[in-house]
Design a protein around this nucleic acid. Structure first.
Lengths: 129, 129
DNA sequence: CAGTATCCGTCTCGATACTG
DNA sequence: CAGTATCGAGACGGATACTG
């Protein structure tokens, strides 16, 4: 990712921005939020996730799960049965984070008209050039 | 980006996740938040931004500015002087969004110990393998 | 001053065959 | 069932010469 906050000298602007960027990175990417949403509803198994999130490859599913687990947003529980059973569950931490994300959503809904208008105006300008 | 919410059939999990992903994408990436932070303090000129955000290339600065402008988070004002002067200012929309981002920050600070612990435990496990 | 155009390396991501 | 290993395509980002 290369968004370490402390490897190079930073301006004060970056000092303020960096911790925010780190959190955003944590849930950025195509799949993280979908998996989080699925796991928050109730604990889910690997194959179940594959079905809940159509389009995701095994590779990305595993990578995303590992990252979320590493950050303490998911727990991974292995039941040593045959065949194997693994469950992923959202942590309290993840639920709280999700609360903040829905806060963002509220912002988006309130500003949807502004955003659409801004885009249309911008695209019109670009097209004119 | 390729995170359109409506081009392919989606599961209900994805329907819930997609609008959130869109907002996150809006401010994801290495530079967006830094530029936002700088512009929220007060309107800034291009070269000023180059100094405020050390390490950014001209290319990325311009690209990021254009994206933020397109989404209505920044306004771009050209003063037809010689030499040219261009100012970027944060919109109200951007200020509100930033408020939500600091909300995320508050979450991160409260959970910093959990995250560190989760990472250490996870990394220890991986190292053991 | 405020950009644009170009070139090129890197790194992410998707598809898929294979395994305990 | 729940993954890992491998490969290749493409997006992303950095450096920098050039311009109105």
């Amino acid at each position: 990712m290369a968004n370490e906050c402390d490897d190079v000298p930073m301006s004060d602007v970056q000092v303020e921005a960096c911790p925010i960027v780190q959190i955003i990175d944590r849930v950025a990417g195509k799949w993280s939020v979908s998996i989080l949403v699925a796991a928050i509803r109730n604990p889910v198994r690997y194959t179940e996730l594959e079905r809940s999130v159509p389009g995701i490859s095994r590779r990305m599913l595993t990578l995303t799960l590992r990252n979320l687990e590493r950050d303490g947003l998911l727990t991974r529980t292995v039941y040593p049965t045959v065949p194997p059973k693994v469950e992923y569950a959202a942590t309290d931490s993840a639920r709280e984070l999700y609360g903040h994300l829905t806060g963002l959503l509220e912002w988006a809904e309130r500003h949807r008209p502004d955003i659409i208008e801004a885009r249309e105006r911008y695209d019109a300008l670009v097209a004119a050039a």
